[in-house]
Simulated assay, not measured.
Amino acid sequence: MAITWKGVFPALTTKFTAADELDLTLFSRNLDAQLEAGVEGIILGGSLGEASVITTEEKATLVKHAVKQIAGRVPVVINIAEGATREALRQATLAEEWGASGLMLLPPMRYKSDARETVEYFRTIARSTSLPIMLYNNPVDYKTEITLDMFEELSAEKNIEAVKESTRDVTNVIRMQNRFGDRFKILCGVDTLTLEELVTGADGLVAGLVCAFPVETVKLYKLIKAGKIQEALPLYRWFMPLLELDIHPKLVQYIKLAETRAGIGSEYVRAPRLTLVGEERERILKVIDHAIATRP
């Protein structure tokens, strides 16, 4: 399936049972809510999906289950975040076998590759697969920046089509467009910059709080892209305390708690993560419950 790389792409959480197994029933309930809200693609196995602690077998189960449930309505993108090029290549091959529509690709994990190594890593994987690829540019969390010069080198790889823009520098959207025009589609990857990056020309967003609030996320996207900024601003102001849950090291626990309160998720996480307790849990619940009580 071709991917247009626009609209809202939820970075879905991975649902677990109390026994630490995949909860496909709850996963399906959340996926239905996303599709009904009008998302234009989904991403599995990302940071929010607890990529570092799910197995290859679990990824296969999630992708195949999603592909079957979605039945061609939107593309299914699987994240690749590996330390070795060899393993990333294996994951790319498996993704095609599982029926994924595309890949989201991070720089090498654990080892901080330099520019030459990072470009070669991306180029090698791109040339190994027919799947379209979105690069994930997040130097804040992953310490490797994909610079404009690196994108210049990678522009020759036709299936590298998009970037998840998470540099936290809104002006990078403008810089990308000034240099490359529409060669690369740009998806905002930081929830708290949704309006700013969409206004400056981003094509869509890879969102986190959409996992709990899909209707509001899609509505915000549509208002902004329609140029209805004055209508979008009250919704964005209401949303902001929730969106800030996406930029914390415990974003998984915070967003899973929000999903739970919204009725489309659970708090179960996989160790070494632990569910929230005490003052921290009460503080995050206060933010979530206030938003639910005052939702537009």
Rank of each mutant, 00 (worst) to 15 (best):
P132N: 04
T260A: 14
P241F: 02
E282H: 07
A92H: 04
V163L: 06
R29N: 11
K112Y: 08
R237Q: 13
D32H: 06
M176G: 00
I42N: 03
L12G: 03
A95C: 12
V210C: 15
F184V: 05
E196R: 12
L24S: 10
L285A: 10
G41P: 00
G72P: 03
Y254I: 07
G45D: 05
T144C: 05
I288T: 04
A88T: 09
N138I: 15
T144P: 02
V170W: 00
D289I: 09
R273T: 01
K228S: 10
L223E: 03
H248A: 06
I292P: 10
N138Q: 10
E97D: 12
Y142W: 07
I229D: 03
M134D: 05
E279Q: 14
L242T: 00
I43F: 09
Q177G: 01
N138M: 09
K256H: 02
E216N: 05
V53G: 02
L198E: 00
V210N: 15
F239T: 07
E97W: 02
P272C: 11
E117P: 00
E165L: 08
L274R: 08
T17H: 00
K185M: 09
Q91H: 14
E279L: 13
K219V: 06
M109W: 13
S47G: 15
L193Y: 09
D20W: 00
T118P: 05
T260C: 11
L209R: 09
K222R: 11
P10N: 02
G49P: 07
E97K: 14
A291C: 03
G102P: 05
L148Y: 01
F184N: 06
I288G: 01
F16W: 15
E259H: 11
L223K: 14
E282W: 00
E267R: 13
P249N: 10
E196W: 06
T294G: 04
L148K: 07
E145M: 09
E120N: 12
A293L: 10
I3K: 10
L35Y: 00
T25V: 12
E40C: 08
I78G: 07
L243Q: 12
A95P: 12
K112Q: 10
F213H: 05
E153C: 15
M104E: 05
T217N: 03
S28L: 13
S52K: 11
